[in-house]
Simulated assay, not measured.
Amino acid sequence: MIHFPAVRRGPLSALSLRLAAAIGLVLAVVGVVYLDRGGYRDVNEDGLTLLDCAYYAVVSLSTTGYGDITPASNSARMVNVFFVTPARVLFLIILVGTTLEVLTEQYRTGRRLSRWRKTVKDHVIICGYGTKGRSAISALLENGFDKQKIVVVERSATAVRQATSAGLVAIEGSATRSSVLQEAHVRNAKAVIIATDSDDASVLVTLTVRQLTAGQVRIISAVREAENAPLLKQSGAHHVIVSSATAGRLLGLSTSAPPLIDVVEDLLTPGQGMALAMRSAERDEVGRSPRELDALVIALVRRGRVVTLSDQAGAVIETGDMLVHVRDDRPHANAVA
């Protein structure tokens, strides 16, 4: 089942809005009838007071219609035909607004689903909305990736609600099932990030994605144990992140070289100071050394391969290179830039 992000009003707010609309409609009818009160006939034949006009408006809008007050003149009948009758219909719509709102929401969801299926392409599928999945999404958004191009696949209903509350499209189901990944249009995806809570699930998801896409979609997977990383690579993952080994190395650095862990935390924490970034080489940078640039370039990506500056191939920037550099990610620095 596909869930779309939605902005929902609270029940008290929706009820207050409908109540205000009903009261406003009643007051409008009272005012129109009171202005033309001479054109109405009362059984008492003593003329219509403001209270009589209010009484007539209420019984007319509620379709009760006792008949003790009736329009007699042509103008009063014209008002009933062109104003009171449409107001009566509108009043009934307000009364049954809850049912109509449900039907409208179902129609709107169907339209959104149809439009989404026609336009979804080059998106990123996040399998798992746990800590790793949410962190991956945060990193994508920090680098300017469109939130509408992110699709979450999660079997937990609670996590799905959290994802939709964050403004993401979420599909409820297991990413190990082909039908669920097909709902996410995995063949048209740009990449699949696998952030499940177990290594065996990561392997199954990787195999399923590779089977459906024939290896045409980039697969990035997280794994807890380093011994399972080769298995994921054999299953079709292009990149494997070993979470336990990475955390262990960071713990070791925090003991043997405390300043290094501060630098790594700074690079990984958005908006705190330094951040890793990648951009295309500009025309005037081609042919120059990466060390000559104002930006602190630490590596080049050339035809999908990482080239370090210590390599001879990394001494000069070539056309089509991507520059991996360290940028100042502090808010005031971005504002100045």
Rank of each mutant, 00 (worst) to 15 (best):
residue 97 G to C: 11
residue 79 V to A: 05
residue 199 D to R: 02
residue 142 E to R: 11
residue 214 A to S: 15
residue 233 K to T: 08
residue 297 V to Q: 01
residue 277 A to V: 06
residue 237 A to Q: 00
residue 212 L to I: 03
residue 106 Q to Y: 12
residue 96 V to S: 14
residue 206 T to R: 01
residue 123 H to Q: 10
residue 25 L to H: 07
residue 209 V to I: 02
residue 37 R to S: 13
residue 30 V to P: 01
residue 265 E to M: 13
residue 3 H to G: 01
residue 92 L to P: 00
residue 83 F to P: 02
residue 35 L to W: 15
residue 195 A to L: 01
residue 253 L to H: 11
residue 20 A to I: 04
residue 139 A to K: 07
residue 117 R to Q: 13
residue 59 V to G: 05
residue 133 G to T: 04
residue 263 V to F: 14
residue 235 S to Y: 04
residue 2 I to G: 01
residue 281 A to P: 01
residue 240 V to C: 02
residue 201 A to V: 08
residue 46 D to C: 13
residue 279 R to W: 03
residue 254 S to K: 11
residue 78 M to W: 14
residue 278 M to I: 09
residue 85 T to I: 06
residue 232 L to Y: 08
residue 83 F to C: 06
residue 288 R to W: 03
residue 289 S to V: 03
residue 3 H to W: 11
residue 100 L to A: 12
residue 202 S to P: 03
residue 74 N to M: 11
residue 92 L to I: 06
residue 309 L to M: 04
residue 285 E to I: 03
residue 281 A to V: 09
residue 57 A to F: 10
residue 179 S to Y: 07
residue 16 S to T: 12
residue 36 D to H: 15
residue 100 L to K: 05
residue 151 V to F: 09
residue 25 L to F: 13
residue 225 E to H: 13
residue 55 Y to Q: 14
residue 55 Y to N: 15
residue 170 A to V: 04
residue 52 D to Y: 00
residue 166 A to E: 06
residue 248 G to A: 14
residue 70 T to Y: 07
residue 119 T to F: 08
residue 100 L to E: 09
residue 25 L to W: 05
residue 109 T to Q: 10
residue 221 S to V: 08
residue 170 A to E: 05
residue 121 K to L: 06
residue 307 V to A: 01
residue 92 L to T: 07
residue 306 V to H: 04
residue 329 D to S: 06
residue 63 T to F: 09
residue 326 V to W: 07
residue 108 R to W: 09
residue 95 L to Y: 07
residue 181 L to D: 03
residue 189 A to N: 04
residue 244 S to K: 08
residue 159 A to Q: 15
residue 114 S to R: 15
residue 277 A to C: 08
residue 298 I to C: 02
residue 94 I to P: 02
residue 113 L to C: 04
residue 174 S to G: 09
residue 175 A to E: 00
residue 298 I to M: 01
residue 105 E to V: 11
residue 6 A to C: 07
residue 246 T to F: 11
residue 63 T to W: 10
residue 113 L to Q: 13
residue 85 T to N: 10
residue 96 V to Q: 13
residue 61 L to F: 01
residue 191 A to E: 06
residue 69 I to D: 03
residue 296 L to M: 11
residue 78 M to N: 10
residue 188 N to T: 11
residue 220 I to F: 05
residue 216 Q to W: 06
residue 218 R to F: 01
residue 1 M to Y: 09
residue 146 D to A: 15
residue 69 I to P: 00
residue 61 L to I: 02
residue 213 T to Y: 10
residue 175 A to R: 03
residue 15 L to G: 15
residue 162 Q to K: 12
residue 54 A to V: 07
residue 99 T to A: 13
residue 187 R to C: 08
residue 18 R to M: 09
residue 326 V to A: 02
residue 202 S to V: 03
residue 83 F to T: 05
residue 138 S to Q: 15
